[in-house]
Amino acid sequence: MAQEACNDLGGIYKKFKPHLLMLLTQMGYTFLYFITEASFNHGMNPHVYITYRHIVAGVVMFPFAYVLERKDRPKLTLALFLELFVLSLLGVGLTLNMYFASLRYTSPTFLASMVNTIASVTFVIAIVLKLEVLNLRNPRGLAKVLGTLVSLAGVMTMTLYKGPIVRNLWHPLIHVEGKSSIHENWLKGSILTVASCITWSIWYIMQAITLKRYPAQLSLTTWMSFIGAAQSAVFTVCIEHRRAAWTIGFNIDLWSILYAGVVCSGLIIFIQLWCTKEKGPVFVTMFNPVSTILVAVLAYFVLGERLYTGSILGAFIVILGLYLLLWGKEGDEVYIKSEESSYQTTYEEHKDNNIQKITSAKKDVLHGEP
């Protein structure tokens, strides 16, 4: 009885392991928004931050990649290196520089909300490239489309509709200094955010393609970190000529770089690559709304930021859309398994028929029949 219970728990854990890992990554990203904003308010240059962050990630991940994947790592050819260069440019050099630059002109809540459009864009691109199964005649296929649209509607509700303010019942637990020093430019920030979301979606799709040729996730994470850091450094040197911008003290700047490098650009990227290989790029992006909701809740309860009823309404809509997407994605696994089972059955039947024909032909020969 105990053995059966353990087997059942093991089966449940194996089934929902990617879901649990993605929830943990969103919790990690939630804290990143606030510690990064605090660092930028302290005067940290976003582009210097991205460069240092990925240097830290590369240094931390390198020993694990070298030791654990020394036998499984594919040979790095020139064509594959160029592919990794483009992948790093999309995921680090271009996307993150635009994304974190926009944080200086907007807010963590706005960025976390806009990130949810990545799931919709990724879903559309994946369908075009035939990386996603879409059958509109099937209820689960409709659920994926409807879930994507509902999640997008929830994001737009959180972003565009404010509604009445929910009053704070107590003083904020943490006061972030330097907030007033930021010059808000929502138009510029919005353009940078939208552009980064588009390139981010392409990056997720390209991950799924690259993983087929380079399945070593630890090594791929390490390569992207080092190449992305070099790209970001070149970009930063071109636009930032002050040497003082590269100086990091023993303060929030250092802690934000270490956290982002070790946890977000190292551990979380590795987890996302694994989940992308197991479940596909759309599955990974589906969990972005979780971070949106956590950021809004923490910003309200901890930092004392204003929370509007539109954000609450949008959060419920986003959760509904996420549930529909997950339900639809579960149908993909059932469909793929049934197709594989059908193919295997057909193959076995064909194999048995061939064996029977060969056996019958041998008997005919033995009996002298033509």
Rank of each mutant, 00 (worst) to 15 (best):
L76T: 11
L89D: 11
F64W: 14
I118Y: 08
T36V: 12
K71Y: 11
R70P: 03
Q26H: 10
A101R: 05
Y33Q: 05
L23G: 06
T106Q: 00
A112M: 04
V115Y: 07
T51L: 05
L111Q: 15
T109V: 13
T30Q: 03
L103N: 02
V86N: 11
V60C: 11
P63T: 09
L68Q: 08
M61N: 04
M61H: 11
F110S: 04
R70K: 13
L111D: 08
T36W: 02
S113N: 14
S39T: 08
F100A: 03
N45L: 07
F100N: 00
Q26D: 07
F100K: 00
M61S: 11
L80P: 04
P63D: 13
L96I: 08
L87I: 00
L82Y: 04
S88C: 02
N116E: 03
E37I: 03
I50E: 08
I55K: 07
N45K: 12
F40R: 00
A65I: 15
S113T: 12
Y99Q: 12
V48T: 06
K71R: 13
L90S: 06
T109S: 13
N116C: 13
F85M: 10
N45E: 14
L94Q: 00
V67S: 13
E83Y: 03
S113V: 14
M27C: 15
F85S: 04
A65Q: 06
P46Y: 11
L87S: 10
V56P: 09
I55G: 04
T30P: 06
L89R: 06
T30A: 04
G58I: 14
L111Y: 04
E69A: 09
G93I: 01
E83C: 11
A112P: 02
S39N: 10
V86P: 11
F31P: 04
P108K: 02
V92G: 03
L111H: 08
L103H: 00
F110Q: 07
